[in-house]
């Protein structure tokens, strides 16, 4: 494999991984606060259609990403109101949010099918990215750099800040956090809003980074991969980064191997099955490493009901 091709593979795999990574980072924070929001796919679709509409109307990609974040966040507030204020079942409400997002984006997007927009390309001067190796550093869309910055930011927030500690406390033991005076519901509202914004931005990656069009169900199930990835990464941001790129790698390698016209000594069905095989292998490896306690936040998915 030539250097050029290797770099092309890496650039494609980074593109494929970025929306999953952004959405999963948002969901990681939500779950750390003890809330399970299965509406990621729906919020991503809402973000995708809003980003497309804003780009189509204004041509301003930054504004499109901002609006996608606001739209994702706003839709997550429906979920938050139902589950946090009214204590509705989180699993059912999250699924409903996905169904709502799918339908809403299809309805809102009808006016935009069949229309092209411009991709959100690298903002660095083109001269910086002429050499293939420099392309790897400077050749990406701002969305890619955003995703990497957010990995560090989320890690720093959860591990090194007081607010992050409160959020984790709320997720691990809501009653204790409540009894020492922290507002469980407000903290969770904030976490869900952040997760919604990240899912919206993840959705904006589809028309801005991957394929500059709007079509119904544009995200084609990537939101569910993001949800699985959070578990896969045991709720740790850097492991999430590795997991997202591993998923991107197996998805991309499959396409590049088939496109090369030779599948090596293995049948092409092997490459198609590889993402699933990789998932099982990694899950087995994780469960072999007994750390004595489950990595999941203790209050994940449980409604907060303090004694009256």
């Amino acid at each position: 494999m030539s250097t050029e091709l290797l770099i092309a593979v890496i650039i494609t795999l980074i593109g494929a991984s970025t929306p999953i990574l952004i959405a999963a980072l948002g969901e990681l924070v939500v779950e750390k606060s003890g809330v399970l929001n299965l509406g990621v796919e729906g919020m991503m679709l809402i973000g995708a259609v809003v980003a497309f509409a804003v780009t189509f109307a204004t041509g301003n990609h930054w504004l499109a990403i901002l609006c996608a974040a606001i739209a994702g966040s706003a839709s997550s507030m429906i979920f938050a109101f139902l589950t946090l204020t009214l204590s509705a079942n989180q699993v059912a409400t999250g699924l409903a949010l996905t169904i709502f997002g799918t339908g809403f984006s299809a309805l809102f997007g009808q006016a935009y099918t069949g229309k092209p927009i411009e991709l959100f390309r690298s903002v660095f001067p083109a001269e910086l990215a002429t050499h293939p190796v420099w392309r790897l550093v400077f050749g990406h869309s701002p969305l890619v750099y955003f995703s990497l910055i957010m990995v560090v930011a989320v890690w720093f927030f959860l591990k090194k800040t007081r607010t992050g500690l409160i959020l984790r406390a709320v997720g691990e033991n809501d009653l204790s956090a409540h009894s020492i005076g922290y507002s469980v519901v407000l903290t969770r509202y904030a976490a869900v809003a952040f997760g919604g914004a990240m899912a919206g931005i993840a959705g904006s990656c589809f028309p801005l980074l991957l394929t500059p069009q709007w079509a119904e169900r544009l995200t084609a199930g990537r939101g569910w991969i993001a949800l699985a990835l959070v578990v896969f990464a045991a709720w740790r941001p850097f492991r999430l980064l590795a997991g997202a790129y591993l998923f991107g790698l197996v998805m991309t390698i499959e396409l590049y191997t088939k496109a090369s016209g030779s599948t090596g000594f293995l049948p092409s069905e092997f490459w198609a099955a590889l993402p699933y095989i990789a998932t099982i292998v990694v899950l087995v490896l994780i469960s072999l490493r007994r750390s004595g306690q489950s990595a999941a936040p203790a209050c994940l998915g449980k409604p907060f009901m303090p004694a009256q």
């Binding site: 494609t12 494929a16 589809f206 084609a220 496109a259 090369s260 016209g261």
Partner: peptide
């Protein structure tokens, strides 16, 4: 899949890169 635009685009990239 009949409809996965992001994967279609990545497949196109893989083919053109080679």
């Amino acid at each position: 899949s009949w409809h996965d635009p992001a994967k279609e685009a990545d497949a196109a990239r893989a083919l053109i890169d080679q």
